[in-house]
Design a protein around this nucleic acid. Structure first.
Lengths: 205, 205
DNA sequence: TGCATATTTTCACCTCCTGCAAATTTTCTA
DNA sequence: TAGAAAATTTGCAGGAGGTGAAAATATGCA
């Protein structure tokens, strides 16, 4: 944990990013991650295959590196927010607070989204990461609501929040309808606030 | 599609079941699916390794065979129900209609649940299957609500329903609190009907 | 029964991923 | 700054997963 910004840590971060970029580049080029081997990705990034697997457990994980990073931030932010906010608000604002629209290249995100959508392996990897996120966040949510992580309610609430976040992000990315991402997320969460059986509000898509 | 009940089809179903059972048995025995090889499962079921992969793409898929079957039934049932029911009700009643509590051995389900919970590979496999289920059901939901499957709302509603189904099933299985499964599912769905920010009703867990 | 069809098996092959130890690089310290 | 100490990268070997193709076997039907 020390050395947060030492040269060593920065080089490692750079290598990770290079591997992730290489995976994305090659996958787009060849029309699917399954058409790319781990060897090719490593070569493209200028490291050995073994090094790729030192950083990532699989080529799919390499491609999803940014998401991994986002979940880390989400968890950290959430942990702070629940100290002075109702959990649901904390979840929504933490989702908005990621500022995906401002911090990432949308073209690149859309590429990745397309690749994921087409690849069973990537879908599984992403889903797996979401489950990890769910587990970690569940402890936070349960504690913040004074319930147990064994209870049904915190699971449903957290699940709804992650669902809203993922769904609205993807939808906004592929169907940008003049709204900002923050607005889209807010609307997505609102659906669960007023009850899913309530018809969507007039201004919503 | 012909020969629905021919000897051939029944033998294939039996082999599939045998493989699935073998996978479960061995995984429980060795304390995790990762401790079991595809070869062992095939041997236990009395077929060649290649045959295992003719039936299932992976040993994880073999272990989750029952769930695969359940999703097929859910889709079929849902397709019928939306013809004469509001979508949300159709989703809830289709979930209840699976009658998991009556048709499966609970001990066995709990074993599987435990194995899944412990294994990243199984979590991914199950999540992947859920995404397939989501895709197929989405077309049904979108059409039934007169919306497009590109729209945000049907995705959120369906997602909420699947989340409620999965979460309540798991919770009921591991924390049977005197309620029937149908009651538990109904309560899970109710959370999304009244809005997740509403406190759980007095009688709920 | 004997032919047509479907299933199972064998086999070769590629890729993924991990452990381990050697080699290399970076950092620290005297 | 030289050299020790620590961390990173690499090569290598090997187990396991998974697929294509063709041979072998089993099944269904006229």
């Amino acid at each position: 944990m020390a050395d947060q910004f030492g040269l060593r840590e920065r080089k490692k971060a750079a290598t990770k990013a290079a591997l992730s970029q290489a995976a994305l580049r090659l996958a787009v080029e060849k029309g699917g991650i399954e058409a790319v081997t781990a060897d090719e990705i490593a070569a493209e990034a200028g490291v050995s295959t073994r090094t790729l697997h030192n950083y990532f457990p699989s080529k799919e994980a390499a491609l999803l590196h940014d998401f991994q990073e986002l979940t880390r931030q989400l968890i950290a932010d959430l942990r702070e927010r629940v100290r002075h906010q109702p959990v649901w608000d904390a979840l929504r604002e933490a989702a908005i607070g990621l500022r995906i629209d401002e911090r990432f290249d949308l073209q690149e995100l859309r590429c990745r989204e397309g690749l994921i959508h087409e690849s069973p392996a990537l879908i599984k990897e992403q889903s797996g990461q979401f489950m990890v996120l769910f587990s970690e966040a569940l402890d936070i949510v349960a504690e913040a609501t004074g319930t147990s992580s064994d209870d049904l309610y915190p699971r449903l609430m957290l699940g709804a929040a992650l669902l809203a976040m993922k769904t609205t992000n993807e939808h906004w990315l592929t169907h940008p309808g003049g709204k900002t991402l923050a607005e889209a997320i807010t609307e997505g969460f609102a659906v669960f606030e007023r009850g899913v059986t309530q018809p969507p509000n007039p201004s919503g898509a």
